[in-house]
């Protein structure tokens, strides 16, 4: 077995550990919702169960995508991607999950930044994973408002796309420490998530496979986690 393959195996096992830990939550929610309906004699809230299960399935799918992309980067087809449309689709994907948690999900895609060269499916999967993790965490953070923003802006390094809240919960060093702690701690991002924070690490793995990074970011007066997509000079000339 080659060194690269061994590294990927270890990485995917670490990630599997945080995903497995995270998946306890939706299973507990579904089991307790079913029990609640049985005990109270009330109708089972099937919409809530459906949305909870869907979100768990998305996490599994995104985990698989992250591992597959890491193992076979050749799967990674690059295309012209509009960051605004990716954020729009991400909001659609997260809408019902945000509703379950009473979180308002805003979209801030003002500004024309032109396309970037990326893998649309991968980018969207990373943002959905990240968004779901922050939706779940926000009500427990003690922020003034339960509101998240999916937003994009231009920085000197490229086009930034991320998820933002009105409270600063994580620094770059805490994010880096969380990556190292993910194998040994059941709560590696203690200021950001009460669970294993799997959605954040899954997003991290997908972006890494795409040669992108997950980093902390600011958007207006909002704080968040984002990725920076380098502008393609050639695409800029074409469009």
């Amino acid at each position: 077995m080659g060194t690269q393959e061994q590294t990927f195996q270890i990485l995917s096992q670490e990630l599997l550990l945080v995903v497995a830990e995270e998946l306890k939550l939706p299973f507990m929610q579904i089991a307790r919702l079913a029990e609640q309906a049985e005990l109270s004699g009330q109708k089972l809230n099937t919409a809530l169960i459906e949305s909870t299960a869907d979100s768990a399935l998305k996490l599994i799918d995104n985990y698989i995508l992250g591992v597959r992309l890491s193992l076979s980067p050749e799967r990674l087809g690059l295309e012209n991607v509009s960051v605004s449309s990716v954020l729009y689709d991400t909001r659609e994907e997260l809408y019902s999950y945000a509703k379950n948690y009473g979180v308002d999900l805003d979209l801030n895609i003002a500004g024309k930044y032109g396309p970037v060269s990326a893998n649309k499916k991968g980018l969207e999967a990373a943002l959905v994973s990240l968004g779901a993790a922050l939706i779940e965490a926000l009500p427990a953070i003690g922020t003034c408002q339960l509101r998240l923003k999916l937003a994009t802006h231009r920085s000197r390094y490229g086009i930034v796309a991320g998820v933002y809240a009105d409270t600063k919960q994580v620094s770059l060093s805490a994010l880096q420490a969380g990556r190292k702690l993910s194998i040994s701690s059941r709560q590696p991002l203690v200021n950001l998530s009460h669970s294993s924070g799997a959605g954040i690490f899954v997003a991290d793995s997908i972006l890494k496979a795409m040669n992108l990074n997950l980093t902390v970011s600011r958007h207006d007066k909002w704080y968040g986690i984002a990725t920076i997509l380098p502008l393609s000079q050639q695409l800029q000339l074409i469009t």
Binding site: L25, M28, Q29, R32, L33, Q36, S40, L48, T52, N100, Y101, G102, E136, P139, A140, H194, S195
Partner: peptide
């Protein structure tokens, strides 16, 4: 900390 579980336990 989990809002959904909190609501179930609350009820």
């Amino acid at each position: 900390p989990d809002r959904m579980l909190a609501s179930i336990y609350f009820d």
